[in-house]
């Protein structure tokens, strides 16, 4: 599924300063039973967001109207655990287009890139700054500039650059995905298959 293009995103952000946020929190396993990619945002952070009787937990950030935006700022080691792409789908479906963290789990990060959510890894210091600015002013705007590979706290002008490989960057800028690429080199692949050691 090709996705929306990503260039520059200016948005307020939702802070989740918890470390090791795992994929079972992002989307619990019991909500993985769909056969289509629909409605996963409703169950994003389900058990942190709702009580057992489905009433919202008022102390969880997604239930706090003070915070909103297309950027989710998470603590260190965000997305650890399962390979379920449903976690990235839930983040996207809820309305986030970018996750900022000082450290991402590997598979989650790859899944995000494959579906059009930009994972932005910043230094622990810059991450702490973003959390502090949002705490001081929930309307703090963050600017994520993919062509320049920078993330900026708009009010203070503080800026940090982030890494993304050139191939993935082009994909995100153009809304292409790996499947498009691979389908274009299918004949190379079938030739290669003949030369494998076994």
């Amino acid at each position: 599924m090709a996705y929306d293009k990503f260039e520059i995103l200016n948005s307020t952000a939702v802070p989740l300063p918890i470390e090791n946020v795992d994929t079972d929190q992002i989307i619990p396993a019991r909500f993985l039973k769909a056969t289509e990619r629909k409605g996963f945002g409703d169950n994003l952070f389900r058990d942190w967001r709702y009580n057992g009787d489905d009433t919202p937990k008022s102390d969880f950030v997604l239930n706090n109207p003070t915070y909103s935006g297309k950027i989710l700022v998470g603590g260190k080691n965000f997305g650890s655990g399962s390979s379920r792409e449903h976690a990235a789908w839930a983040v996207y479906d809820y309305g986030f287009r970018c996750v900022i963290s000082s450290f991402f789990a590997d598979i989650f990060k790859g899944n995000c890139l494959n579906i059009g959510v930009l994972p932005v890894q910043v230094s622990p210091e810059f991450s702490a700054k973003i959390f502090a600015e949002i705490e001081a002013d929930p309307k703090t705007e963050i600017s994520v500039n993919l062509p320049e590979q920078t993330v900026t706290i708009v009010k203070t002008g503080e800026k940090e650059s982030f890494e993304i490989n050139g191939y993935k960057k082009q994909n995100m800028l153009n809304g292409f995905d790996d499947i498009d690429y691979l389908n274009n080199i299918k004949s190379d692949i079938t030739e290669f298959a003949k030369e494998l050691p076994l």
Binding site: S82, N111, L182
Partner: peptide
């Protein structure tokens, strides 16, 4: 382990990009 987009890649092209 891989995500579902990659499952699709392997089904259609027997490859992933890593």
């Amino acid at each position: 382990g891989i995500g579902t987009s990659e499952v699709e890649m392997v089904l259609s092209t027997q490859c992933i990009m890593q």
